[in-house]
Amino acid sequence: MKAQGNEKLRVSDLHAFYGESHILHGIDLHVNQGELVTLLGRNGSGRSTTLKAIMNMVGRRSGSININGTETMGLAAHRIAHLGIGFCPEERGIFSSLNVEENLLLPPAVRSDGMSLDEIYQMFPNLYERRTSQGTRLSGGEQQMLALARILRTGANILLLDEITEGLAPVIVKKLGEVLIQLKRKNLTILLVEQNFHFAAPIADRHYVMEHGRIVEEVQQAELSAKTELLNTLLGV
């Protein structure tokens, strides 16, 4: 394990509940600066809930979540983002009553070194062309770009990305892969929930595998080929 000071996100013994149902059963994970780590697992294994729990978007939680050096369990939901974290939800969360540019400019800057609007439009030329369209009129791929671009503009240096390739055409998935590699080069820290293992495998540094609200396996990039069989069993692919 790398040095403690390098750690951008640490989750310890995290339990989460929706009403009476106990969804997460003691999650332990950490992501270091500049690392891209995935949460793999079947549907319903608790991966999305883990991201939402980090953002304080679920009902009741216990345990510890440390973001950029700050313990966040006692913080109100709107304080979390300002620690330098950006969340891209599974359903993308594009607002239909806002146009593309309004969607893009909606989240307040949480750090000073976010991408400028020009840089964003350079990275995603489609968004520039459609900047005055209603947000939800974009294609699925464009909406995903928008959801991603939106948090890059805020300067967040930890990104929580939920199923960003889901339901998208291969050419868009390829583009998203390139974007993630660029973000890694910028030394951003990324926790990625992913169904598409073939998308995640070549770009990730580490993988956590979840099952029934627990982390059951941690796999380093170098161990991938040795553990392929195990992963196939766990993921049911």
Binding site: M55, M57, A77, A81, H82, L106, P107
Partner: peptide, 13 residues
């Protein structure tokens, strides 16, 4: 539309 997501973006909803 989605108060919870807006709050996750850092707005004091």
């Amino acid at each position: 539309e989605n108060a919870r997501l807006l709050q996750a973006f850092g707005i004091n909803v």
